[in-house]
Design a protein around this nucleic acid. Structure first.
Lengths: 206, 206
DNA sequence: TTAGATTCTGGCCATGCGGTCAAAAAATGA
DNA sequence: TCATTTTTTGACCGCATGGCCAGAATCTAA
């Protein structure tokens, strides 16, 4: 039995790793299909064509399973988008590349992005507080704020409240994906480019 | 027994009207305090110091109760904000007044605004679809879009995608209130004014 | 005063949840 | 081969939910 979150350095067997991956995949599919609130362990198990107990056997609980989903997708996005941001020549172009890059990832991995959004939106701890949103969004905001400050110091951006901007940009991007989830035929890339334009105009110098 | 949503023109007794108002108030307080997911009928009944069955007696179900809360708060906001928007001399000022006005309402009626946000965020129908968000946000978007178009025709605003802007503005405002809920000491009015500035700059002509 | 309508209570129901467990099954290796 | 370990199963647990209802309490009006 190896279900804890790797408390010591013990290795996981190959088989166990495969089962975990299979269950994580089933969780992504289930959440994307029926939404987080209806993605019970029983339903995820059914999707994985596996008994419910197996999930409890391989994971500490639903929370650990969700952590794994979030970490996996989040890492994937960062790997796809960060290099593109760094390749840009100006902060303004980097900001546009960020919005555009995440949108392209979403287009190519719709289920994963949907599942991620759903978990961020709905997962709560036992006190009822958001498990990823709320105060946990702090690192996200701080990353954006770093970008803004760089632009301000470089003279590309005017003097604005970086926290308000970070909260607004993150919200606008989340809303873009939610809108696209509800209206699957919506042109996500056009939306992303338009949003990039709005953001740049909101904060550029002059 | 008069619990249906006024299917015919029958009047509600004074006592019944008072009970309904009391329960609605208890629902607002409970949701604002513990969040929608934990605001069960039992908990709302306890807040109202009333037996659980009373809610079922006076309301068709939890959904009707939530509808009443939403309608009440929403109407109140509109009554407070719409006149202020209409009083402005330019579309740009109207846009700023909108953001500022809703923020001032929230500041003066924190519990009501919190409850409204929570219901919008979490209430779902029996299919798991959002009961107020999603496709139901359409009228909200259309109102914003009318404002934008007026500004475009008047030459105040440049040519931008009104749908993307409406989705983004609504999201940024919702996020502002959510951030304020999580950080109660946050300066909401300053945030609102800053957001107004961001929005205006994003779409103004030139 | 009293019959009938209205309102309220508190227990009950079915459902679904996350999680646990003994026992069965499968894999492993001496 | 066969004992040991790993993995899986499906039933079961406690809990919370929204809703229901028989009977009690209260109000109303003749």
């Amino acid at each position: 039995m190896r279900s804890k979150n790797e408390p010591d350095g013990q290795k996981r067997s190959f088989i166990e790793e495969a089962r975990r991956a299979q269950i994580i995949e089933a969780a992504v599919r289930t959440i994307a299909e029926v939404g987080y609130p209806r993605a019970s362990l029983a339903r995820i198990a059914r999707t994985a064509q596996v008994s419910k107990g197996v999930i409890s056997y391989h994971f500490d609980g639903k929370d650990e399973l969700m952590d794994q989903v979030v970490m996996g997708v989040y890492t994937e996005i960062a790997e796809a988008v960060v290099p593109r941001i760094l390749a840009e020549q100006s902060i303004t172009r980097a900001l546009r590349a960020h919005v555009r890059g995440v949108a392209e990832y979403a287009l190519a991995h719709r289920e994963r992005m949907t599942a991620l959004s759903q978990i961020f939106l709905y997962a709560r701890d036992d006190q009822g507080a958001p498990r990823y949103g709320g105060r946990q969004a702090e690192p996200l905001y701080e990353n954006l704020e770093r970008l803004y400050r760089a632009g301000q110091e470089h003279g590309d951006f005017r003097d604005f409240d970086v926290r308000v901007m970070a909260v607004s940009q993150q919200a606008a991007m989340d809303a873009m994906f939610e809108y696209w989830r509800v209206h699957p035929d919506h042109d996500l890339l056009a939306h992303a480019d338009e949003l990039g334009e709005l953001l740049v105009r909101a904060i550029r110098a002059g």
